[in-house]
Simulated scan of single mutants.
Amino acid sequence: MPETPALDVRGLTVRYGDVTAVHDLTLAVPRGETVALLGANGAGKSSVVNAALGLFRPAAGTVRLLGREPTAALQAGGVGAMLQHGGLPSEARVGEVLALVRRRYADPWPLADLAATAGIGGVLGRSVDALSGGQRQRVLLALALAGAPPLLLLDEPTSAMDVEGRQAFWATMRDLAGRGHTVVFATHHLDEADAVADRVVVVDGGRVVADGTAAAIKSRIGGRTVRFRCPGPRDGLSGLPGVTGAGGDGDWVELATSDAEATLRALLAGHDALPDLEVRGASLEQAFLHLTSTADGALR
């Protein structure tokens, strides 16, 4: 008999007044997977997470967490959540808040390991009002993990973190996945989805427009990207054989091409040197832009 999915969403429709934020969305996440819900702001990612947590009643469809309705799964301690705008009680110390939440569970995550896993060992005695944005996010993560839940639902969890904080956070997520936790996170950071997720679900206009590994989604975009340094003139690059688009930043030039070999031949014929030359497949960003710019929103 197949194992019950960690998250099972069927025909979910979410409306805010006359606005449909999520339309007939179906998604099943097996236990142990790390899944990114990727989409622009307003695509419907947060609505999916909020509906999964039972924060409102959807217009249609069903959601099951670990085989239970959201409220029952949360009450049983099977789900940990980080919301985009989560709050902490003021005039309290981090350790006090953590102790209060841990007392809710019959078998909470051991404090020392929890603090080390969330990276908050150095701020347990600090007032929550004195935390930086990144530290607050890590404390919220610790609270989500306090009951050692098998399923984590995270909504834009690194929104207040700097680059170093984001890297440390996702190192923690990879460790949790290695321990068998299921992690579902909503983000608009393509690099996070590409680097961390076993599976990427692209949401646009409240619909799933792609679902697969990052590599599989990138493979949907034909062609290659030729990248090199070119501090001098760039006239004529967009007219080279095979080139379908030209861009770049600073000294870097990036050429999208449908025929990398023809493009390279033309470049080498016209340039004595092409410093730091790279030829790459499509990036997740290119795939994302392609998927979300198609007018009909259908699966590609």
Rank of each mutant, 00 (worst) to 15 (best):
V22N: 00
P89F: 04
G42R: 05
G44H: 10
S90I: 12
V97L: 07
H23L: 15
A51M: 13
D24Q: 07
E33T: 03
Q75C: 12
T117Y: 14
R57P: 03
S90N: 09
N50I: 13
N50W: 14
A52V: 11
Q75F: 14
L74A: 06
A112F: 08
P110V: 05
A59M: 10
E96S: 10
D24Y: 02
E91W: 02
V79D: 02
T26V: 08
A51H: 10
V29N: 10
N50C: 15
E96N: 03
T71P: 02
E69I: 09
H85N: 15
V101M: 14
S47V: 14
K45I: 13
D24S: 14
F56S: 15
I120K: 03
A28Q: 02
Q84N: 11
L74W: 05
E69W: 01
T71Y: 12
G44C: 08
A112R: 12
E91R: 08
V49S: 00
A60C: 04
L98N: 06
L98G: 10
R103Q: 06
A118W: 08
L100A: 15
A72Q: 07
V48D: 05
A112S: 09
E96K: 11
A76L: 08
D107S: 14
F56L: 14
A72M: 00
V79H: 05
A116V: 12
L100I: 12
G77W: 14
R64L: 15
G80W: 03
A43W: 02
G39M: 04
Y105I: 03
T62Q: 06
P58S: 13
E33G: 06
R68H: 06
A81D: 06
L38C: 09
V48H: 07
G80H: 05
V22C: 07
A60E: 04
G78W: 08
L38D: 01
L53Q: 04
G122K: 13
Q84A: 11
T34L: 00
G78D: 08
D113G: 13
G39W: 01
E96G: 09
Q75N: 10
E96R: 11
L65T: 06
G32T: 08
N41A: 14
D107L: 13
E33H: 07
G67K: 03
P108L: 00
G121D: 04
G86T: 14
G78P: 00
N41D: 14
E69P: 04
R103I: 01
L27H: 07
V101H: 15
R57Q: 13
A99P: 03
T71V: 13
P108S: 02
K45T: 06
G87R: 15
G61M: 00
G54P: 05
R68L: 15
G54T: 13
L83S: 04
A60R: 11
E96C: 04
G61R: 05
L83A: 03
V35A: 00
R103E: 15
I120P: 05
G78C: 02
T117K: 08
T62Y: 00
V35L: 15
A116N: 09
V49L: 05
T34M: 04
M82G: 01
L37D: 00
A115D: 08
P89C: 10
A72G: 05
L27T: 07
A115R: 02
A118K: 08
R93S: 03
R93A: 03
G95W: 01
V97K: 07
H85Y: 12
S46K: 06
A106P: 11
V94H: 11
E91M: 04
A21H: 04
G80D: 00
L100S: 15
Q84M: 14
V79C: 01
V63S: 09
